[in-house]
Lab assay of single mutants.
Amino acid sequence: EPELVFKVRVRTKDGRELEIEVSAEDLEKLLEALPDIEEVEIEEVEP
């Protein structure tokens, strides 16, 4: 069974934007590691 992958769009407080694809596990780590995120948009990517 393929692992869930999420497309994550992040905007930081200083206005930088970042778009990455991460696994569910990595997404959890990412959110814990970035306390200064202003906006996060997450969508599931079809395998």
Rank of each mutant, 00 (worst) to 15 (best):
V22D: 00
R9D: 01
V8D: 05
K7E: 05
E17K: 09
V10S: 00
L31D: 01
E43Q: 10
P47S: 09
L18A: 03
A24W: 13
R16G: 05
E19R: 11
E44G: 09
L18W: 14
L27P: 00
A33S: 14
L30A: 03
K7L: 06
F6M: 14
E28Y: 13
E25N: 11
E44C: 15
V40N: 02
R11V: 06
E38P: 03
K13C: 13
S23A: 09
E28I: 12
V5S: 12
E41C: 13
K7R: 10
E39V: 15
L31E: 01
L4G: 04
E39A: 11
S23C: 09
I37G: 06
V5Y: 05
E28L: 13
E32Y: 07
E41V: 11
I37H: 10
E46H: 12
V10K: 00
L31I: 06
E21C: 15
P47E: 07
E38F: 13
D36M: 05
G15I: 00
L31T: 02
L30S: 02
E43V: 14
L4V: 07
V8Y: 00
T12Q: 04
E46R: 14
V45H: 08
D26H: 07
P35L: 14
E46K: 13
A33Q: 08
E21L: 15
V10M: 05
E46S: 12
E1Q: 12
L34A: 03
E21W: 15
G15V: 00
L18G: 01
E1Y: 13
V22A: 04
R9N: 03
L31G: 01
F6Y: 09
L4H: 08
L4P: 15
E3W: 03
I37Y: 14
D14K: 03
D14M: 03
P2E: 05
S23I: 07
R16M: 08
L30W: 11
I20P: 00
I42A: 03
L4K: 14
V22N: 00
L4T: 07
P35V: 14
L30T: 04
L34F: 13
D26C: 13
K29Q: 07
R16E: 04
E41P: 02
V5A: 08
R9T: 06
V22R: 00
K13I: 07
E32D: 08
D26F: 08
S23W: 06
V22M: 07
P2F: 09
I42R: 03
E28A: 13
A24L: 11
E1I: 11
P2N: 07
E44I: 15
A24S: 07
D26A: 08
E46T: 13
E19H: 11
D36W: 07
E19K: 07
D26M: 10
A24E: 05
E43P: 03
D14L: 03
E38M: 12
L31F: 06
E21P: 02
